[in-house]
Design a protein around this nucleic acid. Structure first.
Length: 425
RNA sequence: GGCGGCAUAGCCAAGUGGCUAAGGCAACGGUCUGCAAAAUCGUCAUCCCCAGUUCGACUCUGGGUGCCGCCUCCA
C-alpha cells in the first residue's frame, strides 16, 4: 500500500472487538420491531423498513415475488428477503453469549456497528466495490437507519469498478491474476497509480496483457497465450510465460509520467537559472486556468480522468515556453513557468502523482531499466563521452558511428544545449 | 430467469439536449535538430441497432443486441 502512495487507515477495527456494540444494535432493532428472533437467530424484517432497495434501485415488491426462486428459503423467516443479524452458534464455531443465546454476528451487522462506533451515526462517504451494493450495502442501510433514523449513515456512496486482466477472463496458461507485488516489481508503482487514475473510479479497468515467446520473441495473440504455443512451434509453461508478460497500458502510463517529470524538471532548471521579474504580469492562458480546471473535474465525483486530461494544454504550453522565449516577454515566461510548477505541486498533492523529485524519479527509472536489461552502464557512459568529443571536433561520421553502436544497445542519445543525455529507445 | 450498470475514433478514455464531442497512445504531415531523439504544431469520430419525445438527441423514453456485476453463509 505504501508503495502505491496510499495512506494508512486511522483505524482497522475487528469484528471480534465489537461484539457488545453489535448485540446492542441488534437489540435496538428488535425493540423497534425491525427484527425478530427465531430459535436463537435474529432476522431483519425487511418489509418493515420502507427504504429498502433505494441504494440498489431494486423494486422490493418484485423482489418479494421472485426471491427464493433460485434458492431454498429458510422457512422460519417471515419473508425470503429477511436477512440474519445474529446466528445461533453451530458446534465448533466461535460464539459469544447474547440475549438470544450463544451465537455469532450476521454478515452485514458488523459494518453498521463498527461504523457508528468509530465514525458516529452519520458520516460522509462509504466506499466499496460495486458488487457490494446488493445486498451488503443495502442491508447496512436498513440496519443503521433502522436503528439511528432515516437521516443517518453515509451521505455519499463511492462504488468502484473492477480490474480485469486481458479483458473478460485470464488465460489458463497464465493464471488468473497478477498481484500488486508482481506488477510493481515490473513497473514503477507511481505508474500503476497513474494508470489507475486514467479511468473514472466507477468504470472497470482492463490491464491489457502482452506476452512474447521466450524462444523467438514474437508476441503471442490471445489464442496462443491460451495454449502457450508459439507459431515457431515452441510451447512454454505457465511460469516461464509469466516471466514474459508486459502490460502495455502501464508502459504508456509510465511514458506519460516521464513526460510530466521531464517537463517539471526542465521548468525548475529554467527557474533556477533565471531572475524573477520585479513586476507581476498575467501568465499564459492554459497555465492560468490549470488549477481551476483540474479542481472542477475533481469536484465532479472525483473525475480523475477528466482532471488528468486538462493537464495536457498547460503541459504543452510550459514545454513551448521552455523551448523558446519567442513571442513572450521575459517576465511572462518566468511567471508562467513559476505558476506552472507551483500549481502542479498542488495537483501532485491531490493525486499522489508527480510529487517526487523529478531528477530522482527520472534517474531511478533509467537505472532500474538498465539493471533489468543488464546494460553495461560504464560502456554506455564511455560511448556517450566519446561521441561528445567527436561532435565537438565536428567529426559527424564518428558521432554517427557511435550513435549506431548505442542504438544496438537499445540506447538513445539526445543532444541538447546542456550536453548529451542518454535514455532508452 | 430477475435486478442493476455499461456500450464514444485503430486502441485507451472524458463529456454535453442545440456552440469546435476533452485528453492520451498509434498513424500521417510540418517546425526544430549536423543526423537523431525529445519538444511542439496540424490532420484523424457524429457517439452499438431500431422506434419514439423534442424546433433540435450522442445526451431523454421504449424495445433489441453485446459485455460486466448482483441475486449462492464472501464481507
Amino acid at each position: 500500500m505504501a508503495a502505491l502512495n496510499l495512506l494508512e487507515p486511522d483505524v482497522t477495527p475487528r469484528v471480534s472487538d465489537h461484539i457488545p456494540q453489535i448485540i446492542e444494535l441488534v437489540q435496538s432493532l428488535v425493540d423497534k420491531e425491525l427484527a425478530y428472533a427465531v430459535d436463537g437467530d435474529v432476522y431483519y424484517r425487511v418489509k418493515a423498513f420502507g427504504g429498502y432497495g433505494k441504494l440498489s434501485k431494486r423494486n422490493i415488491d418484485e423482489m418479494f415475488e421472485s426471491a427464493g426462486s433460485r434458492i431454498d428459503v429458510d422457512e422460519r423467516k417471515e419473508t425470503p428477503l429477511d436477512f440474519a443479524l445474529w446466528k445461533a452458534a453451530k458446534p465448533g464455531e466461535p460464539s459469544w453469549d447474547s440475549p438470544w443465546g450463544a451465537g455469532r454476528p450476521g454478515w452485514h451487522i458488523e459494518c453498521s456497528a463498527m461504523s457508528s462506533t468509530h465514525l458516529g451515526d452519520c458520516f460522509d462517504i462509504h466506499g466499496g466495490g460495486r458488487d457490494l451494493i446488493f445486498p451488503h450495502h443495502e442491508n447496512e442501510i436498513a440496519q443503521s437507519q433502522g436503528a439511528h433514523g432515516e437521516d443517518t449513515f453515509s451521505k455519499y456512496w463511492v462504488h468502484n469498478g473492477f480490474i480485469d486482466f486481458a479483458g473478460e477472463k485470464m488465460y489458463k496458461s497464465l493464471g488468473n491474476f497478477f498481484t500488486t507485488r508482481e506488477i510493481i516489481n515490473l513497473y514503477d508503482p507511481e505508474s500503476v497509480r497513474y494508470f489507475l487514475l486514467t479511468v473514472h473510479y466507477r468504470s472497470g479497468l482492463n490491464f491489457e496483457v502482452a506476452v512474447s515467446c521466450p524462444a523467438c520473441g514474437a508476441d503471442l495473440d490471445k489464442a496462443r497465450q491460451e495454449s502457450g504455443t508459439c507459431a515457431c512451434g515452441v510451447t512454454t509453461g505457465r511460469e516461464a510465460l509469466r516471466q514474459r508478460v508486459r502490460f502495455p497500458g502501464l508502459e504508456e502510463a509510465d511514458d506519460r509520467l516521464a513526460y510530466v517529470y521531464k517537463t517539471l524538471q526542465a521548468a525548475r532548471i529554467f527557474l533556477a537559472g533565471a531572475k524573477r521579474p520585479a513586476a507581476e504580469e498575467p501568465v499564459l492562458e492554459h497555465v492560468a486556468t490549470l488549477l481551476a480546471d483540474f479542481e472542477a473535474h475533481m469536484s465532479n465525483d472525483f473525475n480523475t480522468s477528466g482532471a488528468l486530461g486538462v493537464l495536457s494544454k498547460p503541459l504543452a504550453e510550459a514545454n513551448t515556453l521552455l523551448a523558446s522565449g519567442k513571442g513572450v516577454s521575459k517576465a511572462v515566461r518566468y511567471l508562467t513557468l513559476e505558476k506552472f510548477v507551483a500549481d502542479m505541486a498542488v495537483v501532485a498533492e491531490i493525486l499522489g502523482c508527480f510529487g517526487q523529485d523529478a531528477d530522482t524519479w527520472l534517474r531511478g527509472r533509467r537505472d532500474q531499466k538498465a539493471a533489468r536489461l543488464g546494460l553495461d552502464r560504464d560502456r554506455v557512459e564511455q560511448l556517450v563521452a566519446d561521441r561528445v568529443a567527436a561532435r565537438s571536433a565536428k567529426d559527424w561520421e564518428g558521432a554517427d558511428r557511435i550513435r549506431a553502436e548505442l542504438t544496438e544497445l537499445g540506447v538513445n542519445v539526445q543532444d541538447g544545449p546542456d550536453g548529451s543525455q542518454w535514455s532508452f529507445l
